[in-house]
Design a protein around this nucleic acid. Structure first.
Length: 134
RNA sequence: CUAUAUUCCCGAGCCAUCGUUCCGCUAACGCGGGAAGGAAAGUCCGGACAGCACAGAGCAACCUACCGGUGAAGAGCCGGCUUUCGCCUCCGGCGAAAAGAGAAAGUGCCACAGAAAAUAACUACCCUAUUCGCAAGAACAGGGAAAAGGUGAAAAAGUGAGGUAAAAGCUCACUAUGCCGUUGGGUAACCAAUGGCAUGGGUAAACCUUAGGUGCUGUAAUGCCAUGUAUAGGAUCGCCUGAAGACUGCUCGUCUGAGAUCCAGGGUAGGCAGCAAGAUCAGUACAGCAAUGUACUGACCAGAUAAAUGAUGGUUUAGAAACAGAAUCCGGCUUACGAGGAAUUAGCUUU
């Protein structure tokens, strides 16, 4: 762990096509208003404990600018709030992949997105603690 | 000063903190620099580039359509011509628009109204025969006739004269249109003058005809490297008596020549090149009516691959709000859009 908490480098981005397919096929999901998060605990070995991706439905948002905007807000909120979860995973020696999907119907503000991301990350932390290896 | 429309410009700058991507430097920590658009959009045209091993003939399909210039090219742009429309100070000028070859090769179609919408006789007109009637005339049959009526977006070239039973480009004059010529001007489209022949509704954004042109597929193209499996199994066809494939959408023809197709199942789904210096951009000068070109000087200005270019605060300002996000790259076209600025146009007020 470095001192800098609020980063989101390439290694922490979910990039493997295979891993994403596996995530949607086998993973579970958590829901809060405006946001759904697919997650998978302890998949194939990863270089870092936590990888994440973001997305917005092109059916709901037809303009590329709108989708870009939502993805940027999600990334921004995630990088500001991920450190608690990351610390927990590191301490327990577990890995995890996430994929956030925005489910709202209108363009959100950063505050709305940040609240939703915080809620979901708290849910994920509770789930990790219940599946903690004995 | 106001307003609308059109065209053009512009499409925020700076500072701090946090963050992303690419490049350069560094042993490393890090440091420095670049980072969406005028439309990146629609994918409507045109190219570059790449692959398809290689000649050719016919048919089909598609594209283009006044002339010249420009450019790599075009259904783009610039200039001109013609036609139509509008305005004015009307033998002329200004502005706008044009899917601007051919309807005189052929076929089809032309709502409503109207007798009839293209081999036109409904009313009215004229001639002849018959019948009725003293007569004027009436009825009916055959023919002539597009001059008159009304309908319509459009009615069989227009006006005048001759001509006739009544009429008719039937004849003549002028005009209009088309074709074939001559002379002069213009690179040409075309314009002016003039001779001969002809008189024929519209529609080609119906088929079509004429002239000219067009290989197909698109960067998920394509080339290379790495990893990995299965030379397992089944079915059909074929191995020079030719499967299958290529040229080309089809037919012919030519060429390649031993594997091809399907079922079921397994593996991979990483990297590099393509790929960021170019029909590039900015400035100046010159040539040209212009589009554009030439020369010189300077600049290097996104390059991802689940896909970067963002967030927060402050500040400048009259304002920061619109449409909207590169994906091989360029040139156009079209569509979307807003605070401000400029020009043109119109109106009003004052002098």
């Amino acid at each position: 762990m470095t001192d800098r908490q609020f980063t989101f480098p390439t290694a922490e981005k979910l990039k493997s096509r295979k891993l994403i397919q596996q995530l949607f096929a086998q993973g579970k999901s958590a829901h809060v208003p405006l946001l759904t998060c697919h997650f998978l605990i302890d998949p194939a070995p990863l270089p870092v404990p936590l990888q994440a991706g973001v997305g917005a439905s092109s059916r709901q948002f037809k303009k590329a600018t709108d989708r870009n905007r939502i993805k940027r807000l999600l990334r921004e909120a995630y990088r500001h709030n991920k450190y608690e979860l990351l610390k927990m995973l590191t301490n327990q020696g577990q890995t995890m992949v996430l994929f956030f999907i925005y489910t709202g119907k209108e363009l959100p503000t950063l505050q709305q997105v940040e609240n939703a991301v915080q809620l979901i990350l708290q849910q994920l932390q509770r789930r990790i603690s219940t599946t903690k290896p004995s």
